[in-house]
Amino acid sequence: MSLEVTDMILEDLKRELIGRRVSRREDLESLVKNSLKRSLREILKKNYNETDLIRLIRDSNKPFIIIFFGVNGVGKTTTIAKFAWMLKRNGFSVIIAAADTFRAAAQEQLALHASKLDVPLVKGKYGGDPASVAYDAIQSAKSRRVDVVLIDTAGRMHTDKNLTEELKRVVKVAKPNMKILVLDSLAGQDALEQATYFEKIVGYDMVILTKVDADSKGGIVLSLAYKLNKPVGYVGIGQDYESLVKFDPEWFAERLLS
């Protein structure tokens, strides 16, 4: 947790607790715990957005286009597979664009997911232009009246100029309805730097935090929920398709204190 957020929680606690009279020990404990929970909940709710993505898609023009990006290895491709599964369960038809034309077996990885999920996939050629893969997928969605297009992109570091330009181009061509930044919850303070970078180059509407199953205390979640001015929409809690859950501040506050 960042120092800033820690300080804030401590301030909250001090404000609530100093000068309060407590008669018995148990009272003190529950008093502190409740104050802490309130403070955590407030932080987690700061940028929380009630809008339901499923409802949003239902109410929007089709195809609804979602692009996923983030640094290397955070879980973009897996999250897309989970998303496709969730959307199908909600009655939407889905097409996936494999616009990572760089990493070894990125195409095959997504192809296996697509065939398991029984979802059409538009592939690219290694070394090919990712923007044109996205474009083809959108055209195909339009002609086949598919509801949602999910665009996978290659992992990229905030220090790589070429890849930065490339992502800008994909976004420009795809004109997504929603841009999702995927962050690894095991990352430390660097997650904030990543967020700042992606905000600067293309902007994003929602964060998905992956690998939360590795850290029940949520590690960086609190800092992110507080410091990013964007909602955390979903969290990944495992490697299988069902392991994507809607982010719920109440649930998370409980989890942090358990």
Binding site: M1, V71, G188, D215, G219, I220
Partner: peptide
């Protein structure tokens, strides 16, 4: 290990 790994590094 990933350079961005946070406070969980020790435990992991």
């Amino acid at each position: 290990i990933d350079a961005s790994l946070g406070q969980k590094a020790y435990d992991l």
